[in-house]
Amino acid sequence: MIVLDEYTKYFHRGSINEVIALKDFSLNVKNGDFITIIGSNGAGKSTLLNGIAGVFLPDSGKITLNDTNITNWPEHRRAAFIGRVFQDPLLGTCGALSIEQNMAIAAKRGKHRGLSIGVKSKHRKCFQAELKKLDLGLEDRLHDKVGLLSGGQRQALTLLMASLVRPNLLLLDEHTAALDPKTANQILDLTKEIIEKENLTTLMVTHNMNQALQFGNRLIMLHQGKTLLDVKAEEKQKLTVENLISKFYASQGDNFASDRMVLI
C-alpha cells in the first residue's frame, strides 16, 4: 500500500552537525499490516514516521501510496489518509478547545472546511457514542476544555480522533511512553481494539521489546537509519526478547551497553 524507495533524509546537511537520519531506506507496507518498529535512540524511527507523514521532504528517494507518487505532497495533504498519535500527549489535541470542538476538527480530516457550524448537533450523539467506548467518562464532558484532561485521557482522545475518519495508515510514535504503566496498558489495549476492529494498516514505534513482539504481524529494527532486522508472520511469533538482543548485539558490538534498549 505504502512504499518507500531508497528514502534518504539528512538533517543540517552540509554543516558540521550533519546527520543522516535515514539512509537509502526502503519499505513496502502491505494493506492491513501492523508493523512494530524498535531501535535505539536516534535510530531514525521518528524520522521514518515524520517522513511518511510529510513533515519534511526527503533529500532523495520516493514514496508511493497505492501507486500514486506522493513524495512531494505537503503534510496537510497527506493527512487525508494518515492518522497520527504523537509521543507527547499535548501534541495531538488542542488544549484551548473543548472535547467536542477537537472531535469536530478531527471529523473533518482531509475534507473541505467551510463556513458551516463546526460542532453540529447531529454530530454530538456520534461523538458521545465514540467517547463512551473509552470508558473514561468523557462522554459527559463534551464542553470541557481538553487542557483540563490528564495525559492519558488526552492520548485516548487523540487515538479516537486519529481514527474518527478511517485512516489508510495509522502512525503511532511511542504513544504510550509518556504515560504511567497502568494508563499505558489501557491505551495499548484501546489501540489494539481500534486497529483490529477497523483493520487499520499501522506503524507503531515502541521502546518496549515485549510490546513489539506481542503486537502486530511484522517487526522492524532500525539502527543508524537502516533496517537491521525485518521479521514477518510466523517467524515473528517465534522471536523472543533474547533473540532480539543478541541479533542487535551481533551487528553492533560494544557501544550497545550505553543504549537505552538494554534497560527494557
Binding site: A53, E75, H76, R77, A79, A80, I82, R84, F86, L90, L91, G92, T93, C94, G95, A96, L97, Q101, A104, I105, A106, K108, R109, G110, K111, R113, G114, L115, S116, I117, G118, V119, M161
Partner: peptide
C-alpha cells in the same frame, strides 16, 4: 464555523491541526 475552529487550532497547536489536514 469549521474554518474558524481550524483558525483557533492553528494558533493553539499548529502541529496537530496540520496533521489533521
Amino acid at each position: 464555523t469549521e474554518l474558524g475552529l481550524a483558525m483557533l487550532a492553528t494558533g493553539n497547536n499548529p502541529k496537530m491541526i496540520t496533521s489533521l489536514g
